[in-house]
């Protein structure tokens, strides 16, 4: 129970993002919800690859012997994928915020239900 607290935090973050997507109507709040969702998924990927008492997979001045490298280093592949995921979520956030700016300038409100018409 207590050793899975990282995964519980992931579940709570994803639930918070889904709550925002379902119940909120403000476009800025929806963008914040999607960002929280992306943070939860990044935390999930990182904590899946963690090894107990491990160090980062970087050999520069590492405080371990060369023989126990395989047992002490954290898995590197999830970290690389998380790096990709972070940049993509940043691009998505920027795109969502500029859509919010455009919709606010066209319709005068940030309510998602009031911008159903696609023609300007």
């Amino acid at each position: 129970m207590i050793e899975n607290i990282h995964f519980i935090a992931v579940a709570l973050l994803i639930a918070l993002g889904i709550y925002t997507l379902i119940f909120k109507r403000n476009l800025i709040k929806i963008a914040m919800g999607i960002s929280i969702l992306a943070s939860g998924i990044n935390l999930f990927l990182i904590s899946l690859g963690y090894r107990a008492q491990g160090i980062a997979p970087i050999f520069t001045n590492a405080a371990i012997a060369a023989s126990e490298v395989q047992a002490k280093m954290v898995l590197p592949a999830p970290q690389a994928l998380t790096l990709t995921s972070i940049v993509i979520s940043l691009a998505v956030t920027a795109l969502m915020l500029s859509f919010a700016i455009i919709i606010y300038q066209k319709t005068g409100s940030l309510d998602a239900t009031k911008s159903r018409r696609l023609k300007g």
């Binding site: 129970m1 050793e3 899975n4 607290i5 990282h6 995964f7 519980i8 992931v10 579940a11 994803i14 639930a15 904590s47 899946l48 690859g49 963690y50 090894r51 107990a52 008492q53 898995l75």
Partner: peptide, 14 residues
Amino acid sequence: LLACALLLRPFGKP
């Protein structure tokens, strides 16, 4: 989500 988080493999043993 919470059930999945509790049933997942233990943290620190990938």
